[in-house]
Design a protein around this nucleic acid. Structure first.
Lengths: 227, 227
DNA sequence: GCGATTATTATGTCTATACATAATAATCCC
DNA sequence: GGGATTATTATGTATAGACATAATAATCGC
């Protein structure tokens, strides 16, 4: 372990041991640097890292304080479905169920900041892990980002084609829950109304909507993060 | 904007503009530092930040490459319920529905790594936003962390009491979906079977299980993150 | 006492330099 | 040729010193 990591652990220990109470101001960067016998830049690295993690709050002149609500910030890896399946030692399968140019539904058009009466590619794909249904993908894709001989989305997942070929600008991710529709239930091998974990992603490039995806996972799916 | 932030934006622009393709090796830290006319440490700051965000992948000797699957890592703020409600300009209410020392159910005991036949405090609380039901909290709390005159959890939420009084060590957060039980449906003003967004948190201190919480949110709740 | 100005201070950033480390590339020996 | 050893190299970390910045504290004029 490097010096700044060692120091970070010791600072964390003091906070957890309640040597420094939530809300209290801790010694200044320079004082701590002297105490630990390192340069101020090294001390800064450790303190900044804890501030990034939400454990400390730092303000110029005011000093550094222990956050009142620690563990508020978490980082986690957004599952890239194929990699996640393969990490579990299984084979990732794709079944393209539907592909057609259709008018974008009003609610999705609104959230993508699209004008009315837009036509996007509507793609529905079933993702499999070793032939067991895992997730249903319902996607609206801008036709403007596709090359003339469009790629064969029965072979490459749209997501992987996009990250390899379209520059992404801004985007958002939402997590929510939804009851399985009859169609989804049939595909995922469950009963209509079952609670599904749903991920919704939207992306834009250069102010232009690229895609809206809704991923509905089979029951039992969970996102796990260590604090 | 500071120098390293400006540089980070320019690097991102090049990646998004596909000047540097996914998987490609970009110029070395020193070469880029010269190009931008800054010290290597400053260049390192910009590159390290992009690597932290999952946009770049760096390896000693091998160099820096554009990640094949960008936007895999996201960070988001774990909602602290009271603050979230108050941020929406509403009043956070609490109703303690149940509090008793009970044997921990087998599945939760297993996940908390507890021996069999443990008795924990079982607390059920309804959280309100301006008197509208928002979330049902079902918690198992170790009796060993409580002081002798136990705090009044009808007034202070357990969570806030814990962060203010118990040193936390390790923990985990899970996101999943579940169908509302009859009890939950009645409390949240919905119908049994409705899909609920569920957050499960576990925490330990010094290898000892502190608490397991299951937060079931009213329908419509969603976690939102910008990429 | 009060509002506006000035000083102080802790954090934030930046530089130049040095050495450490891990992983690849080159070399040697058999 | 092939396996073990050595050199090379890009990133990683650390240092001492400097200036910038934002926010608080002190001061001044009235």
């Amino acid at each position: 372990m490097t010096a700044w990591e060692t120091i970070r652990e010791e600072l964390l220990r003091r906070i957890r041991a309640r040597d420094w109470l939530p809300g209290a101001t801790i010694p200044g960067e320079e004082a701590l640097a002297i105490e630990f016998g390192v340069a101020r830049a090294t001390m800064n690295r450790a303190l900044r890292d804890l501030a990034d993690a939400g454990v400390l709050e730092r303000r110029r002149k005011a000093g550094t304080r222990v956050a009142l609500h620690p563990a508020r910030r978490a980082r986690f890896d957004i599952p890239v479905i194929r990699l996640e399946v393969e990490a579990g030692g299984k084979v990732h399968g794709l079944r393209l169920l539907h592909q057609a140019l259709e008018p974008v539904p009003a609610d999705i058009a609104f959230r993508l900041r699209l004008p009315a009466d837009c036509r996007f590619w509507h793609l529905q794909t079933l993702h499999l892990a070793d032939s067991a249904p895992l997730m249903v993908e319902d996607r609206w894709l801008s036709p403007h980002v596709l090359p003339d001989p469009a790629p064969d989305f029965a072979k490459v997942s749209v997501n992987e084609w996009l990250v390899g070929n379209v520059p992404l600008d801004t985007g958002s991710i939402d997590f929510t829950a939804a009851n399985a529709t009859e169609a989804e239930a049939a595909l995922l091998g469950t009963t209509p109304g079952a609670a599904l974990f749903v991920v919704e992603r939207m992306t834009w490039t250069d102010e232009q909507a690229v895609t809206h995806v809704r991923l509905a996972y089979a029951p039992g799916y969970r996102v796990h993060t260590l604090l």
